[in-house]
Amino acid sequence: MTAKLNVIIIDDEPIVGKRLKPALDKIGCDVEFFTNPLEAVARLEEKEFNIVVADIRMEGMDGIELLERVQAKYPRTKVIMITGYATLEMAREAQAKGAFDFIAKPFKPADLREIIAKAAESLGVSDIR
């Protein structure tokens, strides 16, 4: 499968989108970025994304709740959780609730690209690198 991968990034820190969007655009992803999780949820109501990258701690809605909503509506969507406050409990909760992967900030765009590639592979998209 060589279709373009739709990715939505949700993080209340604008710098995250500023850094990650071009890095993912470069590997052929179609990326949308939101700083407001409620606006992101509204967008997710309209469109199914292949991959959701969401911060855990956000104003308005936390990433775990967002993960549950995405899982309920789009079971095939891969959700990657990111956080600056990673703990063992949080990692296990995210994993148990169906997160595809969990990564602690700070990370390099290349680290996320690697996880996106794995998620793409599990979705049957092989030309992401």
């Binding site: 994993q95 148990a96 997160a99 992967d101 969990f102 990564i103 990370f107 680290d111 690697e114």
Partner: peptide, 14 residues
Amino acid sequence: KLKKFQPMAYSIRL
């Protein structure tokens, strides 16, 4: 074998 005990980017890096 539960999902919560599987390695993740976070736990591998840690």
